[in-house]
Design a protein around this nucleic acid. Structure first.
Lengths: 249, 249
DNA sequence: ATCATATCAATCAATAACAGTCAAAACCCT
DNA sequence: AGGGTTTTGACTGTTATTGATTGATATGAT
């Protein structure tokens, strides 16, 4: 059996098996212990798997893989900058809507320092807020499994009961013609309601969201203040006026 | 079985049941007591779980502090028995209210096997339910920081919109004269509403709750079916009729 | 509070898996 | 076919993991 053939077989086995024992491989591949060990060492050096005592395991479990996605250092850093800037206008005593999403999640740390009431549809957001001692109201309704966001008719109806000083919203697409868009109909409906109920709305978005268009339009560009780290090219391109707040990274 | 394999199996088991016995692991993993204990020590050092006498518990259970109180092996075992018995009457297609609390949390695993809609005021409950693919509605409102339960006027109002086939409630005190009681006024109000909206209510309580009285009375003893592992002494003492369901441990 | 039991941490010897080395075998090219 | 390279399998000493055993500690029942 050829070297590459063996190594491919090892990876194939790992695809469906999570872990493989060295012994097991010695039998199945009909190779010596040394050879198997060498193969494993090679594959580990190539980043194809991780060796463990007695064999090897898959490089990433599914969970870890999803956690990796889109979570580059730069993105997180930008999100924190955006969150800090957006929250900087908040005064004590205000009532705030905090949309579900990873960028808005970064706001929590900065909101915790102020005496505010926060309404949110993000379950992780609500948990983090109460743990930091913030007066928190969680919107009720159906739960979107992937994002742990509460959505649906019940949620919208409940949201209509509240009036907000500020609303902080995440957004997936920002486009000069198509405005602000998201891929999910129900999330869009909730965002629209929040916009209506808020005295002033802020949309938090890093540069990766610009020039993207998604399925549902939430509102026009000038219905909310855009908070971002994106630079001048975008300011001109989107024809943003001074109402729009830009944070130069 | 490889080290990592074993440790992954331990964590997988903990994901299902809040605690595992060392003995149980020795059998299932076919490893010595020493090895199991070493694995637990390693995983604890990595912050993957918390060791308790006789085994280990999940790191972030429902509520860190409440978990400290009574996450003994025996208590959890009883709670699982109670939960299993209580849920055994549930049929496909029913709509269920699941109260916040650690005993009701144990119901989730058994509910996941059925095609039901679950309404809950427990945030950890809601998260666990959606992750198991159960159609879940979370009640909105204020959040009680300690227990991560949603309570308050908004929550009660929202709860009144729903009708339930069964309601599964936790309870802190069970007493022949004072009935069913809890320490928190707002939680009591929500439990009362749930009782009203449910066709049949079940109160899940282990032996430690008997003969205790707390601040607020929720209802009379015979307003709900009591599901417990407590034995004969209590059945007589509380003068329970056959409407009350008892599970002999 | 006290005792019987179960669980614990710590230690140790036996075993299994390890990295590194080397010579034989297989491979490749001319 | 022959010289050089690569790959392989056996062997070495070293290290990691394991299960049994010890006395200490915690738990539950009386």
């Amino acid at each position: 059996m050829l070297t590459e053939e063996r190594q491919a077989a090892i990876l194939a086995l790992l695809e469906k098996q999570q872990v493989v024992k060295s012994k097991e491989l010695v039998e199945q591949l009909d190779a010596s212990e040394s050879t198997v060990r060498r193969d494993l060492a090679t594959l580990e050096a190539e980043g194809e798997l991780i060796r463990i005592h007695g064999g090897a395991k898959k490089k990433y479990t599914i969970d870890e893989e999803e956690a990796m996605e889109d979570k580059t250092i730069k993105n997180v850093h930008d999100k924190r900058l955006i969150a800090k800037k957006a929250v900087s206008t908040v005064q004590d005593g205000e009532t705030i809507y905090l949309d579900a999403g990873s960028t808005t999640y970064e706001c929590i740390e900065f909101l915790a320092a102020k005496k505010v009431t926060v309404v949110t549809n993000g379950i992780p957001h609500a948990v983090a807020l109460v743990e930091k001692g913030v007066n928190t109201i969680l919107i009720g309704g159906q739960i979107k499994p992937k994002t742990k966001a509460v959505v649906g008719a019940t949620a919208s109806a409940q949201l209509e009961q509240y009036q907000f000083t500020d609303a902080f919203l995440g957004m997936n697409g920002i486009h000069s013609t198509y405005g602000l868009t998201t891929p999910d109909v129900e999330e869009a409906a909730l965002k629209k309601t929040a916009l209506q109920q808020a005295n002033q709305s802020y949309v938090l978005a890093d540069a990766s969201k610009f020039d993207k268009v998604h399925f549902v339009r939430v509102c026009e560009l000038d219905d909310a203040i855009l908070v971002t780290t994106a630079g001048n090219p975008w300011i001109e391109r989107l024809d943003l006026d001074d109402k729009t707040m830009i944070w130069e990274a």
